[in-house]
């Protein structure tokens, strides 16, 4: 069975989607329309922007989303048995599975990015990648520290991202190293994504998601917060909202997809970050990028 997967923040690169814009009239039309919807030229930043410009949350998220939703439209034989997206990739997955229009998806992703950026400015917070320590140990140490640090992204065995207050991440980082973590890498992000620090953004986005029409997708979508499949629009909406303050359970999502028969994982979007993660979660999985027509 084929699972189509969609990346989140971390897959952006300068010049992204420029080849699609140049070679595919459909891509050009969608990107031009996206610029008009957003009211600024996202495409200029994607095509000519520097790495730094592209790393601003309000740019990164719509850029990755736009690149990702184009791939299934331009690709060969998009026939998903199931879909999943990493963090913001959940919106791209839902659009590609027919549950949400790409225009509404873009508006939500942009609003999500702005709300997250705003939440980041309220209180200093950050994230760090923890390498080489079991998930349970990381969760245990975070829980013991208190609510200001949480395990936010279960990316693959041996790679978990923690999220929280600046001093909390620093203190927990020391404890994790003492507990045997190979490395604790502070991430260059200005906020604690997927943690209670994103509550103001969650409240803001909840209203927008509730007001947007989401229909039953053509296949189940495995969502980040519970790593379970769903085709129910109300449940999908609730999970999209919870995701802002909840953990991205990517390891568990891939394991759940494998459990129901996924053997081939096709990444739709910029880069190959998810392919690497899937390989580490399930070594036998066949992974690839979607082939374009």
């Amino acid at each position: 069975m084929k699972a189509y997967i969609f990346p989140g923040q971390g897959s952006q690169f300068p010049g992204m989607a420029k080849d699609l814009y140049t070679n595919f009239p459909v891509a050009k039309q969608i990107i031009d329309e996206a610029d008009a919807i957003l009211g600024f030229s996202l495409s200029s930043v994607m095509f000519e922007g520097t790495d730094e410009e592209l790393k601003q949350t309000k740019v990164t998220q719509p850029a990755i989303y736009l690149h990702s939703i184009l791939i299934p439209k331009l690709g060969k034989d998009f026939a998903p048995s199931m879909v999943a997206g990493h963090s913001l990739g959940e919106f791209s997955a839902l659009v590609s599975a027919g549950g949400l229009s790409w225009q509404d998806g873009l508006r939500l992703v942009y609003q999500r990015a702005l709300a997250m950026q705003k939440a980041c400015e309220i209180e200093p917070s950050t994230m760090a990648a923890v390498l080489g320590l079991p998930d349970a140990t990381i969760e245990e140490i975070c829980n013991a520290y208190g609510p200001s640090v949480v395990a936010a992204n279960f990316n693959c065995p041996g790679q978990v991202v923690i999220s929280g207050s600046v001093e909390g991440i620093e203190a927990v980082g020391v404890q994790l190293k003492e507990a045997g973590a190979k490395r604790v890498l502070p991430l260059p992000v200005g906020g604690a994504f997927h943690s209670p620090f994103m509550e103001p953004a969650r409240v803001e986005l909840a209203a927008a998601i509730e007001a947007t029409e989401i229909v039953r997708p053509i296949c189940p979508i495995f969502q980040n917060v519970n790593a379970k499949p769903s085709q129910d629009p109300a449940e999908i909406k609730a999970n999209l909202i919870s995701q802002l303050t909840g953990a991205v359970r990517w390891t568990q999502s891939v394991e759940a997809m494998v459990a129901v028969g996924a053997s081939e994982f096709i990444e739709c979007g910029p880069g190959k970050v998810l392919q690497g993660l899937v390989r580490k979660i399930h070594a036998e999985a066949v992974v690839s990028s979607m082939e374009l027509v």
Binding site: G8, G10, H86, G132, N153, Q159, K182, L185, L274
Partner: peptide, 15 residues
């Protein structure tokens, strides 16, 4: 045991 953690870049960390 350690090769996966050498040269690991924070830029390719999915968040």
């Amino acid at each position: 045991k350690n090769r996966l953690f050498w040269g690991k870049s924070v830029d390719d960390c999915a968040i």
